[in-house]
Write a protein that binds this DNA or RNA. Structure first.
Lengths: 234, 234
DNA sequence: ATATATCTTTGACTTAATTCAAAAGAGTTG
DNA sequence: CAACTCTTTTGAATTAAGTCAAAGATATAT
């Protein structure tokens, strides 16, 4: 697949006329990273933005004492580092490849002028930003208003529903990373997996998780927590 | 001040030609709310978006057992409920007036077509969304990676710096609401104010807070926490 | 295959923050 | 100003989650 074809399949560029795609193909830089490679760090000057072509990228914050909070895990077609498009900005978080990844880089200046010329590109960008904002809203709610078991239940249900309601899931990230995504630590997550297993909600075998009691998991994810119920569930 | 003039002073509409402003003035609805009025609730159909003209609006989530997390407190010139502009969406959070407020409402359909026709409106919207996204990033980091004293220190420093580094602050929201904004509860916040006061970091008198040791507060806000240090500070 | 590094789990302990309860203070309204 | 409501503070007890430590399991590379 040539560059223009690849670009045309990216949601952000949906509906762009051929000539604009060709324009984009002239400014794009094709990059490759291996697992663990840092793409940018928090505070780096934002020299452009990126789109994942293949692989998986995590965007994360890290505290002075080393605790990591993953903000996003991005897959094929998803942009990151867009903040660089706004004025004199710095990247607000770190970006690291979680797997071998291929990424397109778009330097700020030529892209910024493209977006100004092209209304449909701007509208696509708005749509993506709204989506992001909504995701972050959910994350804030999750961190502030839900306990860790509930956050895990939410995540498992999300994975299940994303695949049309299947009950057999396979985590595509290590549990360590899942802990960092859910705002907890591996030890805590491990204990909760163990508890859910003991309660017959799920069955785990490494990264494979089978949902045994979807209903109870869903309850856990949405129900108001009364002390009596917690005693029952855990 | 007439409507067109008022519209022209709103950041989202910066740079819009006169005729577009007139266009906007035709679709806008001028609304007034008093403290405690609900503007919309989470899950309501998104029929349009709003801009605060005067007063203060909080956007918040609430857990089944009643804990509230404020996502934003919006003042004059700031838009909210923009998510309604995207397809068939529902408001993802609640909006409530914290004071007597005047608000402009823009119905979805006519506004959506305006944004499609007007590139500079789209770019302004992108700028606002980026800003929001950045704010949420900070909030997630705060909730996940910082303890409550640090979050309060951050907030006090933010207030101080927003006013050019003054040391005498006046909270413009009740401490109950501040607790909800910082992701904690009033009791906890109250204890932390008391501790900071005892440590000579601040002095409080109702909503008035004087920063006595800016440096120590800043340290608390940024420093890596080692056990020994915490013992010293609290 | 063997070594190396990374990930996962479990146990014992600590702690930051919440819950529950109650009282004191401040602000509002008839 | 008196009644009411809302906010703020303090104490005592509880708890969810984190820390520290160590062992076991898995995966990756040479």
């Amino acid at each position: 697949m040539n560059i223009v074809e690849t670009l045309s399949s990216i949601p952000l560029f949906l509906g762009l006329p051929e000539n604009q795609l060709v324009e984009l193909s002239r400014i794009v830089v094709d990059k490759r990273f291996k697992r663990g490679d840092i793409i940018f760090s928090e505070g780096d000057e934002g020299i452009g933005f990126y789109i994942v072509i293949s692989g998986k990228i995590k965007i994360y914050k890290i505290s002075p004492d080393g605790k990591e909070q993953i903000l996003h895990i991005l897959g094929a077609g998803e942009p990151f580092g867009e903040i660089a498009l706004m004025g004199e900005q710095f990247y607000p978080a770190h970006a690291e490849a979680m797997d071998k990844s291929r990424i397109f880089f778009f330097p700020k200046v030529p892209f910024a002028s493209l977006i100004k010329q092209n209304p449909s590109l701007a509208l696509n960008m708005i749509a993506i930003l709204f989506f992001r904002l909504h995701e972050f809203t959910v994350m804030i709610e999750s961190l502030s208003l839900k306990d860790v078991p509930t956050r895990l239940a939410d995540y498992l249900i999300y994975l299940s529903e994303r695949n049309g309601g299947v009950s057999e899931l396979k985590l595509d990230i290590p549990k360590t990373q899942l802990a960092n995504l859910l705002g907890t630590i591996p030890e805590t997550l491990s204990r909760i997996f163990a508890k859910m297993t003991k309660q017959g909600l799920i069955k785990t075998d490494g990264p494979n998780i089978k949902i045994l009691d979807y209903h109870a998991l869903k309850e856990l994810s949405t129900a108001e927590k009364r002390l009596s119920d917690i005693g029952e569930l855990f």
